[in-house]
Every structure is written in C-alpha cells, then in structure tokens.
C-alpha cells in the first residue's frame, strides 16, 4: 500500500525567508487573482441581477429559465462548470483563458448573487412600488430609482460574503492553467519539494485579500447606511 508522504511544518525562519524571496512572483499572481475576482464578480452581479429580475417578472417562462439556471449552477461542482466552459467554449470559438475562467466564475457567482438579490428585492416593502406608481412613475423607473437601491443596500452583507467565496473560488482557475495564487503556490511547492511552505504562504495572501475585501465592503455599507442612522 502506498503511503502518503508526511509533510512537516517549515521552521519559522525558513517560512519568513521564503515568503520574502517569493514576494514578486506571488504579488504578480495575486494581481491575476484580483483581476479574476473583480471581473467575475462584476459580471456576476449583472448576470445575477438579470436572473433575479426574470425570477420576479411574474412571467412563468422567465421564472422557469431563472430557476433552471440556478438549479444547474447549484447542482454541479464549480470545477465541472469551469472545465465544461473552458473546453466547451474554446472548442466553439477562441476565448482567451482569462475570459473563459472569468466567465465560468461569473456564471457560477451569478446564480448565488441572483438568489441574494431576488430575496432582497422581494423584501422591499410593497408600498414602495405603489408609491412610485401613484406618482406616475413606470414600473421600470420605480424599480430602478426606488426598489433596487434599497434592495442593494439590504443585499450588501450577503453579497460581501459571496464576494469572499468568489475570491477563494478563483483558485480553481488554477486547473485551467491560470497562473493565479494557488497555481503558483502548488507549482513552486512541487518544484522545490516544499509544498507546505508554499501553501502556508498562499494562505497568507488569501487572508490579506479577504481582509481588504471585507474592509471595502464595510466601507461601502456604512456609506450607504446614512439614511438608517
């Protein structure tokens, strides 16, 4: 029976030394991780909003399409979705790896974001739409000017949470050869026969990114919360 290799923890000084030595290559990888995350979240919000609106449209076919999309995404592993998109789309037309990865992540995030937005749109008091309508505003205008701003505000905490998940999920882009953080860590680790050191280093980078993201979301939240104070 094959035995699993036991990795030992690196000494503290070795860890620090490696951390410093590899910082330029990791910073470059971090930039790619940030790009993947930001692009996929932004597209994910657009996709999520689109399917959330389908879901609340009260038109059966559109509701069904939205349900089907959410079910497909939630019902299959992200890595399967990434592979299907990567190999599937690349087979049809040429899509740069970065965009294949971003699109896969965006489609994945979009399903969760659509559920978050749907919930927060429906949580806005029904009287708000009626007030807008009674002032002569159209449904679309009321949605845009009255309902969505309130819904986004309400959605911000769960969205922030989804952004963090999206950030960490971007590590799966390593499997379609994106040189983002996780890929760099595993590659360097196996090249140097020192996996554990590099995994610990990459964990630090993710923790810093999550802290930054949390900070940005919190800032946004408190800025929007003026009217609740």
């Amino acid at each position: 029976m094959e035995r699993k290799e036991v990795a030992t923890l690196p000494s503290f000084s070795h860890f620090i030394q490696t951390l410093i030595e590899t910082k330029s290559v990791f910073l470059k990888a971090m930039l790619l991780t940030i790009e993947l995350t930001v692009v996929s979240i932004l597209i994910g919000i657009v996709i999520g909003l689109f399917f959330a609106l389908l879901k609340i449209s009260k038109i059966k076919v559109l509701e069904f399409i939205s349900d089907a999309y959410v079910y497909l995404v939630r019902g299959t592993p992200l890595i399967v979705q990434i592979f299907i998109l990567y190999f599937g789309i690349s087979g049809i037309f040429l899509l740069p790896d970065f965009w294949a990865a971003s699109l896969a992540l965006a489609l994945h995030n979009g399903a969760y974001i659509s559920e978050i937005l749907r919930g927060s749109i429906q949580a806005v008091d029904k009287g708000q739409m009626e007030a807008g309508r009674s002032l002569g505003m159209t449904k679309v205008l009321t949605l845009r000017r009255v309902i969505l701003p309130q819904a986004f505000r309400r959605a911000l905490p769960p969205l922030g949470n989804q952004f963090i998940i999206g950030l960490k999920d971007s590590s799966l882009a390593a499997f379609i050869s994106m040189n983002e953080l996780f890929n760099v860590a595993t590659t360097l680790g196996s090249n140097n026969f020192d996996e554990m050191t590099y995994l610990l280093i990459v964990a630090i980078y993710y923790l810093v990114l999550v802290a930054l993201l949390t900070f940005v979301v919190n800032r946004f939240e408190s800025k929007l919360a003026v009217s609740d104070r």
Partner: peptide, 11 residues
C-alpha cells in the same frame, strides 16, 4: 395618493 403607512422612499 397618500397612504396609511406614508410609503416615503427611505433612501
């Protein structure tokens, strides 16, 4: 129209 619960836009 004026409503029982005002329905002002809170934001």
């Amino acid at each position: 129209m004026v409503f029982q619960h005002f329905n002002l836009f809170p934001h």
